[in-house]
């Protein structure tokens, strides 16, 4: 397991060529309550890519993410081509929790990272490490804030930090820029770039911000129960193409983002 810190590269940074497959999905179908949510999904995520998953609401994107995470009955094959003890980093779009529980960001990461019960250990030892982890997503200043009091964007940054520790083979992001202001979205984009370019992280992200996706993604798959498009983002740069794959409301959110 590697540890990621803000200014160091993991020792075993892979120099594999970009053509290596990390995740292969073959003929995936998912039924929920009698409805077919996903039909014969075929898709490949390559190592070191930012792979965007797009589609209108209700297309099955979150279901696909959950199937990859495991625990969702499905037909077809989801094949991981990496070490079996590697984690999948997961940052969900919505995380339901009780906002009144007195748990700080430091507590949150401590219970994930240490074996000894949190009420029997001093926070000093792990605090330094947690600070470093939070620094990756520029959230060190949130360390003593109660989780219940964080804004959407702040919480998302903390969740991203925890998903990166230990460094996963693949990071699954479900709508990372939703419910976040423009500055937050820009920060996110910069972070994702850094993670891919400097640390070789593979990222599968569900998104709606088409301009961000066009800037960021190495490959785009569009689904609406089945695969509608699967190719490089350049193929999407053409009049009308995007409208086919999104519903109309998406276009407006990108109007004031600079190229």
């Amino acid at each position: 397991m590697q540890t990621l810190t803000a200014d160091k590269k993991p020792l075993s940074l892979n120099n594999d060529p970009a053509g290596v497959n990390l995740l292969e999905i073959e003929d995936l179908s998912v039924f929920l309550g009698g409805n077919q949510i996903l039909k014969n999904i075929n898709m490949v995520v390559k190592k070191g890519h930012i792979h965007a998953l797009i589609g209108p609401n209700g297309a099955g994107k979150t279901t696909l993410m959950r199937s990859i995470m495991g625990g969702m009955p499905h037909q077809g094959i989801i094949r991981f081509l990496f070490r079996s003890n590697s984690l999948i980093g997961y940052v969900p779009q919505l995380l339901e929790f009780d906002h009144s529980v007195p748990i700080t960001v430091c507590d949150f990461l401590s219970i994930m990272l240490q074996e000894k019960p949190i009420f029997l250990t001093g926070s000093r030892s792990i605090r330094k490490k947690i600070s470093e982890i939070l620094a990756i997503t520029e959230s060190e200043h949130l360390i003593d804030r109660l989780i219940g009091g964080l804004s959407g964007g702040e919480f998302r940054r903390v969740l991203l930090a925890q998903a990166l520790e230990p460094l996963p083979e693949i990071l699954l992001l479900d709508e990372p820029a939703s419910n976040v202001d423009e500055y937050g979205a820009m920060l996110f984009e910069q972070m994702l770039n850094r993670l891919r370019d400097e640390h070789g992280l593979t990222i599968l992200m569900v998104g709606h911000d088409i301009k961000m996706i066009l800037r960021l993604a190495d490959r785009v798959t569009s689904i609406n129960r089945k695969v509608m498009f699967d190719g490089s983002p350049d193929e999407l740069k053409g009049p009308g193409k995007v409208a086919e794959l999104f519903d109309g409301s998406m276009a407006t959110s990108t109007d004031n983002v600079e190229e």
Binding site: M69, Y90, E96, I103, M112, P117, I118, L120
Partner: peptide, 22 residues
């Protein structure tokens, strides 16, 4: 209780996240 506290607290917080962390 000491042994499982951290883990059960994470599960109590959100089971999906706990599962994602193994």
């Amino acid at each position: 209780f000491c042994f499982i506290f951290n883990r059960i607290m994470l599960v109590a917080f959100n089971p999906i996240l706990a599962k994602a962390r193994g």
